[in-house]
Amino acid sequence: MFEGRAIPFRPGQSLAGALMAAGVVHFRRTPVSGSERGPWCLMGICYECLLRVDGSDNQRACMTAARPGMKTERQDGARLDAAGEQA
């Protein structure tokens, strides 16, 4: 699931791959200016594809395997801390 929408994927697919195949390229907004970003390097170096995965922020979509029932959301701005405040 991404933003409440069901996303199909094949076994072995990354979150980034599954979302891009479904036409999603906007993964997050930057903490600095709020500009839209999506996957860039797809090899775990650039940290551009960060998503909130099952409530946990700052997850690299390109390095995370897609699994059934996963709930992913755009990450807008910096990650949220345990109290739900923007870090």
Partner: peptide, 21 residues
């Protein structure tokens, strides 16, 4: 180069190798 939808070609090739995408 920061716009969504712009990626490295190495990244695109990883998607092809790993996911056939």
């Amino acid at each position: 180069w920061t716009l969504p939808g712009v990626t490295t070609i190495g990244g695109l090739q990883i998607l092809l190798k790993r996911e056939g995408l």
